[in-house]
Design a protein around this nucleic acid. Structure first.
Lengths: 327, 327
DNA sequence: GTGAAAGCGCTAACAT
DNA sequence: ATGTTAGCGCTTTCAC
């Protein structure tokens, strides 16, 4: 910028004015400055700008895994809102590891992102308190924050699972399995709670051998699903706790001669063709809502941290309407 | 940092040494500094650090759409490599708009990202020349750069499509349609070239009405596919130019009484269950290779810009092995 | 082992 | 309409 000023024969501040489109520069001076900028291939150094202005015009998004088809649309939705506010998006994947989550979040804080959207892997976010106090707005998505008061945007996991299981019950099932994600993940627990509520609503007993939480690794899910389908009194329906579980369950059930009913949490591409009944949540809406909330905070709105819950939607496509086999 | 120094009763540089884990501080001093850091909730301001050091430890990735299941894994792979090198990843979606691509790229340059990975939407990247000269390493992925000499990592679109179409021919088809993406997209053109090569290899004529390039919007793809399947002499097989096209084509073909063979470029989740034969490319490898190349440049390797081409893999699952109907 | 001073490139505040 | 000065928070250099 110094060089540009020298070459254009003007002061530093005049160049700054031109670069930032501020008023108070004669067209002629502006032209000379522009020429110098062209000639020198100058581009404003935003790092220096940030240092001076205090705002980075960037926000951070920490999620589990960008490669998961659930998070792609969420991230994209956040990006669109950020873009509308002139901000860039820094993405990080925690790989469901609390330490890595913290490492990422703190790295983003050190860069002084203006705001942070976090899909938490851990359960204790007190480490964020000084940062939030220092002015980094934070919104949690998909799962609530741990031990800290913060904005949070969730899907109605409990209600969605309850509706899905009730749907299976309405189609005559009495023995229904629940195969879910790790018990330390909030949504997994909530969905299991929804399952239990639906069973209880219908006055049905739950055999604990029907319930299995754990890794979404295909081998684990396959083993768990096979277990509930074997034995003297197998289940006649399966409720899958998330998209990863559903995919594996569908593969497994496709190979069986006795049809087993299935409802999965999360919609999946091509689920329509495979006739998979699901409880769909709107990942993009989740991201959009969180981002809008974040930017409202950045614009100075400072009411109490609050929670928003988005509703889910049952989409019946066949697999959830398979009746139990007649004895 | 000033505050920390004051509180610990040491000089500024000593704090800096502690924060960066440099040698030359007595354990006792270090402890005092650490305490002050804790008490004040201090976190190093990386913007200032960057300004001084010249490196941001961040790279930019500009792609088409993070919500597309093809780009999620690619982005994640880039992120992993970046992480291994201590860098953060700033993502941007161009939405296939050259202006937006340029806007994003230049914004990333203004932030002085150390490097840039670009899946180009436009065809003229001369605007990047001054930036590259200024030291921002750049690698193009999935599609080559336009009018500029740069590193590029591609999949073998030509070879993959040729193999896929040859596969259909080997199963007895002679009238094969090609439904692809917009003709301004390099991969679309390459895949079409592969289609033509396979047809020519087999001595088969191509009726231009079988070929359709355009938006991957479901309505467009549906119309194009229906067109090649109607009339007096319909095609007996379809080659779909990418994952978006394949998804729509599968939906359409599923509803027909006469089976139509299909091979699609790009693998899709659950394609195994639906029996869709595909030419798979490895999105993660694409991202990984590009990122490794980028960091090699950042580490000072400065040989000539070069191109890498990753091979594709035919996965036969049924849809590509359907024979043409007997007359 | 430690610290003071200079300066990275920019903008805010204040001249002119 | 334009220029000058100070300083954002850090690291580098060099002196102690």
């Amino acid at each position: 910028m110094k060089d540009v000023a020298a070459r254009a024969g003007v002061g530093l501040k005049t160049v700054s004015r031109v670069v930032n489109g501020e008023a108070g520069v004669t067209p002629d001076t502006e032209r000379r400055v522009q020429e110098a900028i062209e000639a020198l291939g100058f581009r404003r150094n935003d790092s220096a700008r940030v240092l001076r202005k205090g705002r980075t015009a960037s926000i951070g998004l920490v999620l589990e895994d960008l490669a998961d088809p659930f998070y792609g649309p969420l991230s994209r939705a956040v990006e669109e809102v950020a873009r509308a506010h002139g901000a860039l998006l820094i993405n990080g994947s925690s790989a469901e590891d609390p330490d890595r989550e913290q490492e990422l979040v703190l790295a983003l804080c050190a860069r002084r992102v203006d705001g942070l959207i976090v899909i938490p892997a851990g359960h204790d976010h007190r480490y964020l308190e000084p940062e939030i106090k220092a002015g980094i707005a934070t919104v949690f998505v998909d799962r609530p924050a741990g031990r800290i008061d913060a904005d949070v945007v969730l899907s109605d996991s409990f209600g969605g699972a309850r509706e899905g299981v009730a749907h299976l019950i309405a189609h005559g099932h009495r023995r229904i399995a629940f195969i879910g994600d790790q018990p330390r993940i909030h949504t997994a627990v909530e969905r299991l709670r929804g399952y239990r509520a639906a069973m209880e609503d219908a006055g049905l007993p739950v055999d604990e051998r029907w319930v299995s939480l754990g890794s979404t690794d295909p081998a684990r899910v396959t083993a768990a699903t096979e277990a509930v389908l074997s034995g003297p009194d197998p289940v006649t329906a399966v409720f899958a706790g998330n998209n990863r579980v559903t995919v594996t369950a569908v593969r497994l059930l496709a190979g069986r001669e006795t049809p087993v009913a299935l409802v999965g949490f999360d919609d999946i591409e091509l689920a329509d063709l495979l006739g998979i009944t699901v409880i769909a949540q709107d990942a993009a809406a989740l991201g959009r809502t969180a981002a809008e909330r974040l930017f409202r905070r950045l614009d100075g709105v400072s009411d109490e941290p609050a929670g928003v819950e988005l509703t889910t939607r049952l989409i019946a496509r066949g697999s959830g309407e398979i009746p139990p086999p007649a004895h």
